[in-house]
């Protein structure tokens, strides 16, 4: 590694650039979900009654619980960075475990929610789904696609934080060098921000 460093820099790391790379990646995620939100908004404007009817089928309590779980997990990961900066590695680890726990709770909740819908035959291709209006079909199609893609991000985020936990335990992330922890936090907050938009659009607009 030594000979890869610019002779006049004298440093082996660049935290500003490391974080910038993460932000650039997050921007691509933002445009991915942004496009889907655009699709949703246009179809909602074109099929207002069908979307309203379909959105009443969703469980607001489940959605609210998941919102609180995700917001709380954002808090724990943000506090974990504070703990690391203050040199309290034990607390930082505990807060990261709590974040992973929140991710699991979110996914279990999501599983029951999807399961209830699928039991009623509301899934693309199933009997009850096939009898719905075209607009309602669109709503449920977008619902499964967007919350599914978001759930995939929750899984990836939890695995990312799992790696960070392992690195902290191996002392590869220390109070003097914790950019990976910050970047995993940034990813997790993005997952939270996406849910902040998904929740009202699918569950609350009546």
């Amino acid at each position: 590694m030594q000979n890869m460093v610019l002779s006049n820099s004298g440093h082996l790391r660049d935290d500003v650039a490391a974080k910038m790379g993460m932000w650039l990646f997050l921007f691509t995620e933002l445009l991915l979900f942004g496009g889907l939100f655009l699709v949703y908004t246009i179809y909602r404007i074109l099929n207002p009654e069908a979307f309203l009817l379909a959105s009443l089928e969703l469980n607001v309590i489940m959605g609210t619980v998941n919102t609180i779980v995700l917001l709380t997990s954002s808090l724990t990961v943000a506090m974990s960075i504070t703990a690391m900066q203050k040199g309290n590695i034990r607390l930082s680890l505990i807060l990261l475990y709590l974040t992973i726990l929140a991710a699991v709770i979110f996914l279990v909740n999501k599983y029951f929610e999807w399961n209830a819908k699928i039991d009623h035959g509301v899934f693309p291709g199933m009997d009850h789904y096939n009898t719905l209006e075209p607009g309602e079909k669109l709503f449920f199609f977008l619902y499964y696609f967007m919350t599914g893609l978001h759930a995939l991000h929750v899984i990836i985020g939890a695995v990312f934080i799992g790696f960070v936990v392992a690195f902290i335990r191996k002392q590869k992330i220390t109070p003097g060098r914790y950019m990976l922890l910050e970047n995993s936090g940034l990813y997790w907050h993005l997952v939270d921000i996406i849910w902040i938009f998904l929740f009202p659009l699918f569950y609350l607009i009546h």
Partner: peptide
Amino acid sequence: MAEKDKPR
């Protein structure tokens, strides 16, 4: 702090 641990 070692030289390599110093942020730019």
